[in-house]
Design a binder for these strands. Structure first.
Lengths: 168, 168
DNA sequence: TCCGGAAGGATTGATATCCTAATATCTGTC
DNA sequence: GACAGATATTAGGATATCAATCCTTCCGGA
């Protein structure tokens, strides 16, 4: 004997039931999965922003800084960063603008191609990237609240989705 | 005998290797999972935006419209929508602003609480929501490019993550 | 060889969205 | 009747995208 209003108050499951009720069964699970992805991203991004706030960084700028710190010379052409991080050229420009004004990155002319610009990480930038990574590791990446097994399922499934979308 | 640069060109796996190389093993899988979520959201949101463009809707506005079409009276207080869709009050205000200017929703005074405002879907709004859902179902939700089993794994794991974050 | 157009790289400006903070109004309770 | 809390909005800052622009490089044909 169940009550009309189920105890399950997950809004995504509720939406899925609505989908089935309206005859959209073949899309219901996909809808629920997509909505879950969107919501999960909101959750993790909010945690990331909170962890990064003391360092005056957004996730986009953090990614750029960390990418640069991983390279041999500490510098990359703007376009190459956009390609690696999958962001638009204009976003790279504005993010580097801000990083430059913060003294974490500087723009250098490309040695051989006068069209291109190198973004180069400064010593301050390296230190900031390290400290921010420590915060993210401790406050976000090690605290997802799901099991190691689930984390690996997530990686595997989303890797398939990304591959299918032509990401790599 | 392997070459220095592995054939696996997935940037997220590459980042994970860097994490391990630097001694952040305990955070490496979580980092990869989080980055995968962020990237997967970019991918599906881009597809959603493409599918919704002919209807002059963003995903946020589509969600509001569909939520309203699911209610008995076709109307809800602003705050209630924000709570159900997990978006900030200001986002609800601006989204309803736009929906109202498009003639898809109208603002009505709350019958008993003069503080509150009801957003009410119009007939045009209902028709738009239906057409947009058909497009999303066919072009996105049924075309994720992963197996039904993987879709359900995704739902389950992300449900755990959301529950753990206090979502429901 | 040279020259002219196609393509690449980066930026700017315009637009839309989201978030934070502050504000105005209203409700309900002590 | 005063005051804490709820509801919605406005204003401002940050970010992402799109289109257009400027400069540079590349390449094929005269």
């Amino acid at each position: 004997m169940t009550i009309g209003r189920t105890l399950d108050s997950d809004p995504i499951e509720e939406a899925r039931r609505q989908w089935i009720e309206r005859g959209w069964e073949s899309a219901a699970d996909g809808m629920a999965a997509v909505t879950s992805i969107v919501r999960a991203q909101q959750i993790v991004l909010q945690r990331i922003d909170t962890a990064l706030r003391p360092f005056d960084l957004t996730f986009a700028r953090y990614e750029i800084l960390t990418l640069l710190s991983f390279t041999k010379r500490g510098s990359l052409p703007m376009t190459r960063m956009g390609a690696l991080l999958q962001v638009h050229p204009t976003s790279v420009t504005s993010a580097v603008d801000r990083l430059e004004s913060q003294g974490l990155v500087e723009r250098l002319p490309h040695p051989t191609d006068r069209r291109a610009v190198l973004a180069s990480i400064t010593d301050t930038g390296r230190a900031r990237a390290l400290a921010a990574t420590a915060a993210l590791n401790g406050q976000v990446f090690e605290q997802l609240g799901i099991t190691e097994h689930q984390i690996n399922q997530l990686r595997t499934v989303l890797r398939a989705l990304r591959a299918n979308a032509g990401d790599f």
